[in-house]
Design a protein around this nucleic acid. Structure first.
Length: 554
RNA sequence: AGUCGCAUGGUGUAAUGGUAGCACUACAGAUUUUGGUUCUGUCUGUCUUGGUUCGAAUCCAGGUGCGACUACCA
């Protein structure tokens, strides 16, 4: 029974190209980040796509940094981008920088000048903008458009030699000032920028523009399928034009719609703003949609990959529900995360028929979904912490937890029955009194009693403390970019809550970066800010909570 | 206004002229020593008008809606 997996539009194109012999050496893709920020979940889509396609069709995928703008790019970003890609589980075939090709690109530019397809323009940025025309009106040709090849060659060389100030001259392609596609109205190929480049230092003072770097870099590397996002679709004719004029390897560009996630923003500019203005603690703040933020939050790489693959790709605008990402995170973590008990909002429970001062050790499995995960020992005594919300003085019919005369199972331990409780002057429950059923111990229960509910607990004398960072969605609205005014007005003021919790002893020294399930509560990840004896846990994602849902309805 | 692109349940994505399917969500139920997991079931969709055809989500034409493009950013 052959399972028919439908192809996305890029796979269809590739399979057709392979079938018609268009790619005799196999396919080649590339992931081309600009090192001016951190990677986010949108980039993850592109990574999964480019590396995934190369793998699926036995091709190659390069990492290439698009570093043609020295004023925004930094080595720090290069390193973090590489780390993120590897963490996601991918390894590039070879690593390149557009800046490696600066000399070659310069030669290409001279080639176009010689062919009468490029010229040096003395116009200012304002003049160029003013003569560009509009969406409905053609542009005007520059007075410098018809310089001789010799003059152009000489001037371009002089630009490179640093004989002109920033902005004094540019090199432009000679295409068509009346073209309906504005990008083809003599686009700028090179500008003068006397800035220090993170790799080439001060070797260059002229830098190629995106349009004269990206396609040429693809071609040099023999990229067969150059995949980018939809907003570059207008660049494709220019991409093709340069390659054709130069007569170099015919790379082809294909566009897909970028991934948007609800309740967050994805533009690097906006993310940078959140970081710089201190709305978040950094690029890897667990609330950020960055790869590093999600890693710190405790999202497994496999969940991010699963998310990208589940969502798929197409050419239409979209906003994917954050709930789908969270579903993928839960699905991965359910299989892999060890379970521990943690009490977030404690109330004391005393077992009146369990000898004061007595302690016993109970075996507790780490993960019911994974028999190889093993188990740990859990201390038990007559004084426990349980979750305040697991007790109700006057419980409704379907409340399967503790209340006067009600019975529950203490996870991994005994069945108990509530016999009494004590309140303070304000009416807050102070202590709960129970009797336990000695024959009901987990694993050797001979009591014959069947209870509906099971709750988590901690032996009070053994419990330790942890700091909790409870995270919620970064924005209050589904699509902050769609709202009027500044997107920051829509930040969720409650996206971070600090809290304390009691934890079982075996959780106190868990290595940072480990994600675990706090039984019945949710997944948490030990943060790198943890200190010996004072762990810090980030909330990763909650468990599905059918009871909470039930209550909402009432 | 010009050019280009895109319209399938609440969300995302299939069906490539032949039964509109899958995942998430929502809802109902079964199982459960996590009100978790797992399992079963239910609701909800082809932007519009016309054309071609035995047959149209699919092809054609018009309309409507949405998005992108007028950076010496990528």
């Amino acid at each position: 029974m052959a399972e028919e997996k439908s192809l996305n539009f890029l796979e269809e194109i590739i399979e057709a190209d392979l079938a018609t012999g268009k790619c005799p050496d196999g396919i080649q893709t590339r992931f081309p980040p600009e090192p001016n920020g951190y990677l986010h979940i949108g980039h993850a889509s592109s990574i999964v796509l480019n590396f995934g396609l190369a793998k699926k069709y036995g091709g190659r995928c390069n990492l290439r940094f698009d570093d043609t703008n020295p004023s925004t790019e930094e080595t720090e970003y290069v390193e973090n981008i590489q780390q993120d890609i590897q963490w996601l589980g991918y390894q590039w075939d070879s690593r390149h920088f557009a800046s490696d090709y600066f000399e070659q690109l310069f030669q290409f530019a001279q080639q176009l000048i010689r062919a009468g397809k490029a010229y040096v323009d003395d116009s200012s940025a304002e003049e160029i903008a003013a003569t560009k025309g509009s969406l409905t009106e053609p542009g005007k040709e520059s007075p410098y458009r018809n310089r001789s090849v010799e003059d152009n060659l000489k001037l371009f060389q002089a630009m490179r030699a640093g004989q002109f100030a920033d902005g004094e001259k540019v090199l432009r392609a000679k295409v068509d000032m009346a073209h309906p596609n504005l990008l083809l109205r003599d686009p700028i190929m090179y500008r003068i920028k006397k800035a220090h480049h993170h790799r080439t230092g001060d070797t260059w003072c002229i830098y190629p523009m995106y349009d004269f770097a990206h396609g040429q870099s693809d071609s040099i590397e023999q990229v067969t399928h150059s995949i980018c996002t939809l907003e570059f679709i207008h660049h494709r004719p220019l991409y093709d034009w340069f390659i054709e004029q130069l007569g170099i390897f015919p790379s082809h560009q294909y566009e897909f719609a970028r991934r948007n996630l609800s309740y967050t923003v994805m533009s690097k500019r906006k993310l940078l703003q959140l970081v710089q203005e201190g709305h978040v603690a950094g690029w890897d703040d667990p609330r950020m949609p960055t790869i590093s933020g999600m890693r710190r939050r405790g999202y497994p790489a496999a969940a991010i990959r699963q998310f990208c693959e589940t969502v798929g790709i197409a050419k239409r605008e979209n906003v994917v529900d954050l709930g789908l990402l969270e579903f993928c995170v839960r699905e991965q973590l359910n299989k892999t995360a060890n379970r521990y008990m943690m009490v977030l909002n404690p109330v004391k429970l005393i077992i009146t028929n369990y000898p004061e001062g007595q302690t016993e050790s109970l075996e507790a499995e780490y993960n019911p979904e994974d028999t190889h995960a093993g188990s740990r020992e859990l201390p038990f005594s007559n004084t426990l912490w349980i979750e305040r919300e697991d007790f109700m003085e006057a419980p409704p019919k379907k409340f399967f937890r503790l209340g006067p005369k009600l019975m529950v199972r203490l996870k991994h331990a005994y069945i108990i029955e509530c016999t009494d409780f004590k309140k303070d002057a304000e009416g807050t429950v102070q202590e709960i009194y129970c009797r336990y059923i000695p024959e009901s111990r987990s694993g050797s229960d001979t009591s014959g009693i069947h209870v509906k509910g099971t709750i988590h607990w901690l032996s009070a004398p053994h419990a330790q403390e942890a700091d909790l960072r409870l995270y919620d969605r970064l924005f209050r609205v589904e699509n902050p970019s769609d709202e009027s005014g500044d997107f920051k007005e829509y930040l969720n003021p409650d996206s971070l809550h600090h809290s304390k919790a009691y934890i079982e002893p075996s959780l106190a020294a868990i290595p940072s970066g480990t994600t675990f399930q706090a039984l019945r509560k949710g997944y948490f990840c030990a943060d790198r800010d943890s200190q010996a004896g004072q762990p810090v846990f980030n909330s990763t994602v909650g468990l599905k909570d059918a009871w909470a849902k039930e209550q909402k309805k009432a």
